[in-house]
Design a protein around this nucleic acid. Structure first.
Lengths: 224, 224, 224, 224
DNA sequence: TATGAATGAGGCTTCATTCAT
DNA sequence: GATGAATGAAGCCTCATTCAT
């Protein structure tokens, strides 16, 4: 049961182990409360090695942010099929997003909570990623407006606000889904689409957003 | 004989000063980075006095969370006129929310960022407040369904998800409004209502949510 | 024999104790090899108190340099009777210098060895003091030239060089006197005067510098 | 197959590279602040190789001291023509000394500053060299006394003191010359000779020490 | 001959917290 | 009611040094 003290590994491998340990620790304890000692121990290395490879607590945290941000954006990007209608793209992206955050709670905690909470070297890092996502959503909204044969007379800033709102809703639903037992990524995505695309007003009138063909069963009652 | 140095003040006043200082410091530096030294100095008292009145850093932070949470919920509550329609109530509550967070950035930072980021004694505290707000929104949605003569056949959990989404959208918009120059609380609230009530789908069709009478001008173009 | 743990002393007293301990430790171990732990222990205080009062190792060392530099220059200054002839002034200053360095070996080690060896914040500090002394000597040389009815046609830089040489000779003799058993401050001063004032050439011719009246016995044979 | 990365070199060459790097690093950073990492990198070798060849930081530093001490004494020794008069020998030695220290600032820093500042294994090492030089000067003084047909009735200790003073003056002038722009080794040597041989007293009377034939121009005004 | 991988030990600094007045 | 004096504990980081290849 005791861990076998594996030794002498190539740098790349060790670095990955350290980042894994760091993501877990930072995600669970928070940036400041996480100690380099704990991270090193969890990684199965001595502290000096962590410093040798990753320089400082700050750099280590930044590396975590970058890795997790890249992983998340990559997940969303590769979930989306460009060329489809705006709502279908959003639906695909949302599913990828909820799936990824559910599978990487520590990474998501780093991006969503820790990095934003601990000031400037970090906030900027994650802000870049978030802006990327917001931009993606913004563009979807614009596309949707075009699809509706509507001149883009929506003021640019209003569109930005709508994108912010949508992303905020998704972030909130991610926490909710990961916290409430029995809520799947797909259900979270469905809720998001209903909320964002149909709007409460329409929902109340019994007109939810309806998922396209293959994805049919959007109702909340299913257990994917 | 001694120089008039020590200003004897009633306990309540001193405590308020300390909490003010603590909210500011915690909000700006973060929970861990804030030092009791700094708080005591900002409050104009000696450190032992802070401990005498507030016990520990943890208790002090908890007191901050409670005070700010109470202030925020009170602001929202007193902004709402109970008898109105669901959307008007939400509109009123949103305006109160955006106004309050804009005016109390440190308090809002404590609730939205710090408390959630620093683990258990605190997360629970702020979760309670958030649930209160989510419950308020949930109930509004139920009311709206009833108003639409619709049986409440929406699964309870779906409603919960929608409320989560709406609150998340509001939180996100609060950060956006406080960050983007020239965005007023009212505009943020308008964006939230359009997004949440009409939904992107309807917006794209040129059917935004329309604000009731007195509040008319909801378009983003106005500069309140 | 165990030290009585004396507690609760006014800040000024504690600060002095700390500086005493620091001078001793820095002087004997060197700046880098001296540990704050050791200094605190020698001072009979906990490390945090040292930091509370003196900020950092660097600041502590600087404080030592300043204190010892002030003490040395003060000792020399108050040893000199202005108004006397140049050689008598130098003689008085030299005696004060050798006496002080003999009595404060750690302080002298800090000024002469440590501060110069450890780079910029410190070197400048001690350079200022040394320049003060060099300036004093320079001016003595100028006065001597005037006394000898000699126009000050000595190039300014040459005078500077002579002053440097004299000060260097004194520094070297200080180490020698403190190291060689049985060499008194007075004898060191006499050697310096013979060397600097008469010069080897004259000494060899049997014409040493002769001390004025009261100070008569300058020969090396006496044991003051 | 492998890339040509490792340049096999004879041990002697590698050792020289390491010592060069070490002298530079120790001279500029100081003994303690210099890291073996930096030295190895500057030498273009891996750290284990440094240890393989030179054992430890202490041994490495000692090796530096020895090499630089040998180089300096060798330079002075080979500058001196044994058969000449005492003052001419001193003049030659001084010129060699100032020239060498000017050309090897790092080595000189090690000998003059670092080795003396860092305690016992090292101080002794450099003290040995210094004593060698002091002995050389002492013997010159004795010779000078004999040349002046003066019985060596100067107490032995006084002669020792004079030699110390002279060496100290030279050390001080070395720092001065290397620091003051435009002061050549020759000028520093001239200043030393004037100071040490003629003495301030005679200089003030307008009787400087005069350099022998070929070396004529001793005045400070020349720009060699 | 030469090195990439790895660590025990120790140093500086800061913090939350308490005592004695 | 209020504070100046004081500290145990812990965190970040670096360094000299070695092992295994």
């Amino acid at each position: 049961m005791g861990s076998v003290k594996t030794k002498r590994m190539p740098r790349a491998v060790r670095e990955r182990q350290m980042l894994d340990a760091a993501v877990k620790t930072f995600g669970q304890r928070g940036y400041m409360a996480a100690s380099m000692d704990e991270i090193a121990e969890l990684a199965g290395v001595s502290k000096p090695l962590v410093y040798l490879y990753l320089n400082s607590k700050e750099d280590l945290f930044t590396a975590c942010i970058r890795r997790e941000a890249a992983a998340l954006t990559e997940a969303v990007r590769s979930g989306v099929r460009p060329g489809l209608g705006a709502d279908r793209q959003l639906w695909a992206g949302a599913r990828a997003f909820f799936t990824h955050t559910a599978q990487n709670p520590d990474g998501w905690a780093i991006l969503h909570l820790q990095a934003r909470t601990h000031g400037e070297p970090f906030a900027a890092e994650v802000a870049a990623m978030r802006e990327e996502i917001v931009a993606f959503v913004t563009q979807l909204i614009v596309v949707a407006a075009r699809e509706a044969h509507r001149d883009p007379d929506l003021p640019e800033r209003e569109v930005a606000g709508l994108a912010e709102a949508l992303v905020g809703a998704a972030e909130s639903l991610a926490a909710w889904a990961n916290t409430t037992p029995g809520v799947s990524a797909r259900q979270a995505a469905a809720t998001l689409m209903n909320f964002a695309w149909a709007g409460l007003g329409n929902l109340m009138e019994g007109r939810p957003w309806s998922a396209p063909d293959a994805d049919q069963v959007l109702s909340f009652d299913d257990r994917a």
